[in-house]
Amino acid sequence: MDFAPLLLLLFAFTLAIFLGFELISKVPSQLHTPLMSGSNAISGITIVGALLALSELEPTLAKWIGFFAVILAMINVVGGYVVTDRMLGMFKKKEKGSPQP
């Protein structure tokens, strides 16, 4: 078996861990919740896995399980982005009075 493509995937996995660690630094405390909510929406990326379970030739049971996974992941994605946007909109209004840097 040729494992080179699998090793590339593991390579991407390792780099993404380091990148994830590096991306977050000195976040102001009022942004903790929106950041959590925004990255929660990104974890809805599992929608890709759910959609791929819906191939025509797959067993019916697998497709139905995939169907419910699509619904749940989509709630996570759409709900996550909309709620984060609302949080940040509220944040902006509060900050309007303060002088801009």
Partner: peptide
């Protein structure tokens, strides 16, 4: 990649 980014940045947060 996306799952891992959320996993790692989530731990730091």
């Amino acid at each position: 990649v996306a799952g891992c980014l959320v996993g790692a940045s989530g731990i730091i947060l």
